[in-house]
């Protein structure tokens, strides 16, 4: 049962990476995927942002995956949360600050009175996409590499732990990956002209992400990177990740939007799987290779049973209505859509 809850936790985090990932990507890219009509020289600034319109109906439903992740982390793995969050304090605070600003900016941008106010919100939107993406990448890097745990189970990261080539490279790779993912989503959901622009940007970003991603891989091979518990599984996952990146690039350059987006979805979800499956049965390791095991992190049996009773009912329902919302808004964006953000 603990493993099932770990899988659920992984599902929520992976769901957040996939869904939140394209939000952040679209946020980062939105000034570069501008209003195509304005570019054509009608001369009038409309304040529209097609990239944001593409993510708009899903935006609120996407961000909540993170909330659910945090909730389940606290409910089912209180001991992991109690050591993870204070340990990663600076990174978590940065992520939250970025999220808060970016989230508010996306929702309030449309309320701005003039072009000036809108530009302010625009800057915040980019910032609020880039900072969480970068920091989540660093968190992944740290989890892969192992954290400096003390004997009493607590740990603290300092600048020395984050500013290592491996962790930083993971951060930058993730940010690039999210941006590419966002581009693939915009390509999928926008009118043809914009889709073409998004495709070009996305392909470029994927190349950059692959190039950057080679660095952590090399570092790991030379022993200065990730310290995986399950070497084989991790290697397989890493190969899959590379394949997903390559596939995304291949399909994107050839204009197969659905396949390209599927591939970037896999590419954003796989790092989570890598942390989970690569370290199993540990949920948190130190570079020495030992760490907090699943059994130590999980909540008491009685609580887990109650949570499971609810979970069995609630989780399929959640998946059903989220799918319904994707289905209801599956069309390409156009000007006859209610636009609000």
């Amino acid at each position: 049962m603990e493993t099932a809850w770990l899988a659920l936790l992984g599902l929520l985090l992976a769901g957040y990476f996939v869904l939140g990932g394209y939000d952040y990507g679209a946020q980062m890219l939105h000034p570069f995927l501008g209003d195509t009509r304005a570019e054509r020289g009608s001369g009038r600034e409309t304040g529209r942002s097609p990239a944001l319109e593409a993510i708009a109906p899903f935006f609120l439903g996407n961000e909540v995956w993170l909330v659910a992740f945090a909730g389940v982390l606290f409910g089912a793995f209180p001991h992991l949360e109690g050591s993870l969050l204070p340990g990663l304090y600076p990174l978590i605070v940065a992520i939250l600050a970025g999220l808060v600003l970016g989230n508010a900016a996306v929702q309030l941008r449309g309320r701005a009175r003039g072009a000036r106010g809108r530009r302010c919100w625009d800057a915040l939107i980019v910032f609020g996409g880039a900072l969480p993406a970068l920091c989540w990448g660093c968190v992944l890097g740290l989890l892969l590499h192992g954290v400096p745990r003390r004997p009493d189970g607590t740990f603290h990261i300092g600048p020395g732990d984050v500013l290592t080539p491996f962790v930083l490279a993971c951060g930058v790779t993730t940010a690039l990956l999210f941006a590419a993912h966002g581009a693939a989503f915009v390509a999928l959901r926008s009118a043809p002209e914009l889709a073409a622009v998004a495709r070009r940007r996305g392909a470029g970003l994927l190349r950059a992400a692959a190039a950057m991603g080679a660095l952590p891989l090399l570092l790991t091979l030379f022993g200065a990177g990730a310290a995986m518990t399950n070497r084989m599984t991790s290697a397989v996952l890493a190969v899959l990740l590379a394949a997903a990146l390559a596939g995304a690039w291949w399909w994107l350059t050839r204009g197969h939007h659905v396949r390209a987006f599927t591939a970037t979805c896999c590419a954003t979800a796989l790092p989570v799987l890598l942390v989970g499956a690569g370290h199993y049965p540990y949920v948190l390791i130190s570079p020495a290779g030992t760490g907090l095991t699943l059994g130590e992190a999980v909540t008491d049996d009685a609580t887990l049973k109650i949570l499971s009773v609810f979970g069995v009912v609630v989780i399929p329902v959640i998946l059903a209505y989220q799918t319904w919302s994707w289905w209801a808004f599956r069309g390409r964006t156009g000007r006859r859509h209610p636009r609000y953000f």
């Binding site: 961000e63 909540v64 909730g71 389940v72 909540t299 989780i315 959640i318 209505y321 209610p338």
Partner: peptide, 26 residues
């Protein structure tokens, strides 16, 4: 932790998803 986890799973997920649909569903 249990009530907080259930809050996120039962309430927030639905609230945000449905509100997003309501805003853009006109």
């Amino acid at each position: 932790g249990a009530p907080l986890a259930l809050e996120t799973l039962i309430a927030f997920f639905a609230e945000s998803t449905f509100l997003g649909m309501w805003i853009f569903g006109w």
